[in-house]
Design a binder for these strands. Structure first.
Lengths: 136, 136
DNA sequence: TTACATGCAAACTGTTTGCAAATAT
DNA sequence: ATATTTGCAAACAGTTTGCATGTAA
């Protein structure tokens, strides 16, 4: 049985000092199920919870968390970066009308017939985005 | 048997006046097989071919072509927009080390088990990106 | 002739960075 | 005590836009 680590410990293990801001952001991100957020929305969340953090620190923290493997970035469109707290292999719905990202349950969508990869390369990961629009 | 349209005609049908710039850009884009480009690289191409076009017009033209269904945008990462001249349903390799996009041959990768789509929504399209990295 | 397209520069958006002040170890 | 982190504002990259000029119909 595996003891779950405190947030501070998780950060320390990733080589990140558990500062007030990082711990608060990590709590917001990892406390309640999977989340799909962008920098602005996380910043707004933090301020709403009376956690004063600058937007620059939110950006830096998201990058550090991504680099540490605590978050995964999801490319949706050019203008905003989204991050997913679920770093395991899974795919996404993107609701184009509302700009919202949701998970596809693992197994609900399966990829088969992997193409031959060019010599000297490996697959880093496979991103699948099922883009949804309103029926008119 | 289907007569292939001149570039000017294709543009006119899409509701776009075949101006010097648009025709030149369309030629660069559609004359020789499928291409994956971004605004800067198309602009550079145009200048190299002695076609003076402003970068703003390249951006505007790419958007118009996309809107007209002549191009498809491919979301790769936050910082740059890529466009694909192949608008049919197909998937992509993304070479993370070189920042290059290539097609996966149709049939080489297959998706199965489409998940139930939320009520009132349809699938607009499915994007698949197989991200490649160098073997270390 | 008239509506639309272009080019330039300025505006804008999301993101990163430099540096002094604050904080973790 | 020392190295790291924060916050702010300024810098930055990619993209869009306003407006005077040029061009297609």
């Amino acid at each position: 049985m595996q003891t779950s680590l405190s947030i501070a410990e998780k950060l320390r293990i990733s080589g990140l000092r558990p500062t007030r801001q990082r711990v608060a952001l990590a709590k917001l991100l990892f406390s309640e199920g999977d989340r799909h957020i962008c920098a602005e929305s996380l910043h707004a969340d933090a301020l709403a919870q009376k956690v004063p953090v600058s937007l620059a620190t939110v950006y830096n923290t998201l990058n550090q968390f991504k680099f540490a493997g605590l978050l995964r970035e999801v490319a949706i469109e050019g203008d905003r970066s989204y991050y997913d707290t679920n770093t395991s292999n899974h795919f996404h719905f993107y609701n184009e009308d509302e700009g919202r990202l949701t998970d596809i349950a693992p197994g609900d969508l399966v990829i088969s017939g992997l193409p031959k990869v060019p010599a000297g390369k490996t697959i880093d990961r496979i991103d699948v985005i099922v883009r949804l629009k309103k029926i008119l």
